[in-house]
Design a protein around this nucleic acid. Sequence first.
DNA 1: TACAGAGTTGTGTGC
DNA 2: AGCACACAACTCTGT
Length: 521
Amino acid sequence: MSHNSIHWFRKGLRLHDNPALIAALKDCRHIYPLFLLDPWYSNNTCIGINRRRFLIEALRDLDSSLKKLNSRLFVVSGPPTEVLPKLFEEWKITRLTFEVDTEPYSQSRDEEVMKLAKEYDVEVIPKISHTLYNIDRIIEENKGKPPMTYVSFQNVLKDIGPPKKPVPAPTKEDMKGVSTPFSEDHEEEFGIPTLEDLGLDTSSLGPDLFPGGEQEALRRLDEHMQRAAWVCKFEKPQTSPNSIIPSTTVLSPYIRFGCLSARTFWWRLTDVYRGKKHSEPPVSLHGQLLWREFFYTTAYGIPNFNRMEGNPHCVQVDWDNNPEYLAAWKEARTGFPFIDAIMTQLRQEGWIHHLGRHAVACFLTRGDLWISWEEGQKVFEELLLDADWSLNAGNWQWLSASAFFQQYFRVYSPIAFGKKTDKYGDYIKKYLPMLNKFPAEYIYEPWKAPRSIQERAGCIVGKDYPRPIVDHEVVHKKNIQRMKAAYAKRSPQDKDGKTITKGVKRKVTSILDMFEKKAKR
DNA sequence: TACAGAGTTGTGTGC
DNA sequence: AGCACACAACTCTGT
């Protein structure tokens, strides 16, 4: 039988390791590679200009790769449930393929689309290739609930075995007998819009340090995999959050959009490791991919994962509603140069080191400002090129000690932490030029510099750079007590003040049971 | 059921 | 420089 296939790109913006695309090409006469500009995202999330640019670059790269196979990318605006039925009819579609995505919106969207496809007699082929594993399988192997620690997660994976090997990109050979019916005015009808076409203000675009697209992703992967000794030695906690050149691979935006397959990355690492002594999870590069998989699993298996309320694993905390503090954090004017430099890099460049994320996340939540992690989550979602629903929610819960991580008395110092890897504050000077002439001994706490030194440096604290909005020493001690109270509420104590855990355990299990039953239905 | 042990990446002090 | 320790005492997993 000869099919007319749509391959619907959502994440997975690549040709390599794209099993759903390969499935679309089987016994196929006409292939329509499709990307939808779904208004749901603009209506429900805030996406910054740098992220939008990354997406458009990735689409352009995809189109250029498809051109080499005598095909083209079709870009259409509108809700999938409205656009797809029209295209099914217009293009006489018999088959729809796409990559599985586990985010809640994707799940409900795809469920609706599959119903519609049935009505139009369109065969649907979903394939797993965004994650290393089938997430359902991991949860099943762990008795129906997601593993809640990295070690137990690893134990489950031991039973499953290594991830599947990536599938090669389609070749001209695979395209024999397959064509894409595109017309001469393809650009007008189905072309990739520019940022201006989308009516976006491009005045705040930052430098294009990490251009989107599969070709750039594979180039970047090659570049790093050639450094075999570095790859084998890699230990995430030993990399610097405040180096001028990123100390890690910065492949995360590419993996987020699926320009790079996690499985391709995984097996390339395996090749580099082979026969050599190398670091191990959780700190190795394999370990980083497993962290991603870990949070994809918990995000899929835990209800209301991006919220505090209704999230059975999240400690319920009485965070302050403090718009002034939130704005100061978001706009890089907390008065702590280390924090403000990181927030500036985030806004301008769209990527900050994982430990930089730790520092600013701890500062916003349990460390200093006592503002809900959900607020921080929104800011990261807007500004991070690699903002990924599952990882963003999971890591914010981790850093705010709301879930996964409970040692809330371990607080990052906005002054001391950065000094470990950047004694002289070069990173701060790069992102906060007003502090450029400040002597190193005061660069992390400019308010302590004598007036004469501030004058000589041409930067008066309170005028040219803000005073610190909180006294870290005071506020972090207070916040540890507040965290203690939040945990005590969740975990009732006996008369000696010792925590009784069994009652809570039963409560959490029962909520999970309910969720499991719901999921089975 | 109870308990021991561990937990990706804290800070400050002292040797 | 690098390590041990106190700080105070959290939760999850496995036995």
